[in-house]
Structures are given as C-alpha cells and as structure tokens.
Design a protein around this nucleic acid. Structure first.
Lengths: 153, 153
DNA sequence: TACTGATTATCAGCATACTGTCAATTAGCG
DNA sequence: CGCTAATTGACAGTATGCTGATAATCAGTA
C-alpha cells in the first residue's frame, strides 16, 4: 500500500479525472455545455422539484458552499429557477426551467455513453462488481466527508 | 445506468471526495499539512530525483498546468528544490529538500492509515478486487484525459 | 546553417471543492 | 412569549484541475 499506483486515494483521483474528461468529451460532441456536477443537479431536481439548496446538496453529497456556485451558473444559463421559499425565508427553492428539462432529455444519451466508456476496460460482470464495491465503500464512509449524503426529508 | 446512484461518474466523484476528506483528517491528526496531490508529488520525486516538471506530471497523470501550482506551494514550504536544467534551459529539474524527505517519512503511517480507511467498508478480498478493477478501468482509458500517465523516459 | 515543428513552462480564465465565518431566520424549549 | 440553538445561504480564502494561449527553447530537417 506504499506504492501510489495501488493506493485507493490515487486511483480515485485518476479515475475521477478520466471520468470528467470522458463526460466533457461526450457532452460536447452532443452539442451541450454542461459539467458533470451541473448534470447531476439537474437530474435530481427533476425528480425532486421544489427542494431547497441544502436538500439538493444532501441528496448528492455536495458541500453547501459549492452548490451555491453551481446553482448560480445553472440559473445564469436559464436551466433552473431559484426563488425564496414562502415557508422559510432563509431557504431558496429550486425548479427546473423548461430549457433545463429539454437539456436533460437531450443530453441523456451522451451521459449514458460516457458512463459506459468510463468502464470500457471492464467486462459486464466486472462492471457490476466495480459498481457494487464502489457503493459499498462509499456507504461505509459516508459520514467521513463534510458533505455526507442525506435522503430527502 | 440512468440513476445517478449507480453511475460510475457519480460514484467516482463521491469516492474521491471521501478519499480526500479522510486523507486530510489523518494527515492533520498526525501533525502535518499536506494535500493528497502534494504527497504523491513528493513520493514520486523521492524515487525519481532530478526529473523535470513534465516528467513528474506524466508519472502521476497530472496536467502540466496544474503541477506548476502544486510545485510552487511545495517550494514555498521548503519541501522541494526547483532549478533550471543545465541540459535544457526550458526545463526545471526537481529535488526533494531535506525537509521534504523528513515530511515524507513522518507522514507515511498517516497516509497508509488513510488508504485503509477509504476501503474500510470492504473486506480484504473485496479490497484487492476493487483495486484491480480500478487499475484495469484506468489503464484502458488512460489516453482519454488531457494528462495521461506516462512512464519515465 | 536556417527553418519548421515540437516541447517546456507559464498565464488568464473558468469550475469544482474545501475551510472558517457571518447575517438572517427559524425551531425548540423553558 | 422570549431566549438559545440550529439551520440556510452567503462570503473570503485556498487548492485542485481543466481550456486555450504564449514566450522561450530545443530538435530534426532541408
């Protein structure tokens, strides 16, 4: 474990680096301009319309500070709408804009192609196992990051 | 594959996020102030003294632009020494400073503990398989990022 | 040798991500 | 009801990482 080529931390960084590069390549080739983070935010917002920033952050394990900038850029692009919550004036509730829904649907094939390419070196059984181990390791260490995953309230 | 909870790209981001958090926690508890990226740069430099920035970047698959800032901060901390190459005046050759070697040796237990914690949710056999699949997927997609891994010349 | 192309490092700019801190607001308890 | 604690979103600051561009330098060739 003292060789970086075998360290989970190094492998995590490298795989993430490749995953982001593949995502960008596929999405750009499909004619869209969206980062991986922006995509996940849109996708989750589609299934949970009207949640506030903190809830969205919890669902995808983002830091509250980070999600602010991501949302700013999505609002800027006209893909989501942000409004002060009528129930809680601290909170900003979020909704997909029409352009956001159209973008999500248009981008879906590119996103799925990207996911396949990230594990192109693995066969079907290995891919299933890789994902299982990923989820198991993440679930066990969920509370170790400042931004743990939290289910919707 | 259309649920982000199963997408390799999302799992990669989340695992990387946890890995960095655990690394920081362990390293700080051991009394050091070093990021994961800075650690790997030091570790590789120890086994390849005198390489230039581009070679170091290639060995650990960093972007050349990114490594510049990392090296700046390591020089600033007095952990490495940077000098213009006598053979090639474009290149900057790098060496560990004494403080860099001391830091590397002192930090090693914390780094290895962090690696174990990242996969604390997996048993021994699963950990071996996880690392194998990580490496296989990465090797197959090495050229997909702007900064592919390159062996030393 | 002169020129072309490649390589090295750097720069500005953008987008995550984290730390710590803060004001505004809400919720819970006495 | 009034006070304290917790929550929400924001800010400044730091560190990766990427894109595209550039100056300096080197290498291979005409």
């Amino acid at each position: 474990m003292s060789d970086h080529a075998v360290m989970p931390g190094h492998l995590a960084r490298r795989f993430q680096q490749i995953a982001v590069a593949i995502f960008h390549a596929e999405v750009e080739a499909a004619g869209f301009d969206l980062t991986p983070v922006q995509y996940v935010a849109l996708a989750v917002l589609r299934h949970h319309p009207g949640i506030d920033q903190a809830t969205l952050a919890g669902l995808i394990a983002y830091d509250r500070t980070t999600i602010g900038g991501v949302i700013d850029r999505l609002v800027q692009k006209g893909l989501i709408v942000r409004a002060v919550s009528p129930r809680d004036r601290r909170a900003h509730v979020l909704h997909l804009a029409e352009a956001g829904l159209a973008t999500l649907e248009g981008i879906q094939p590119a996103v799925e192609a990207a996911q396949r390419e990230m594990v192109a070196g693995l066969d079907a059984a290995e891919t299933v196992e890789f994902i299982r181990l990923f989820r198991k390791a993440i679930a066990a260490a969920n509370e170790r990051s400042r931004a743990p995953m939290k289910p919707a309230p």
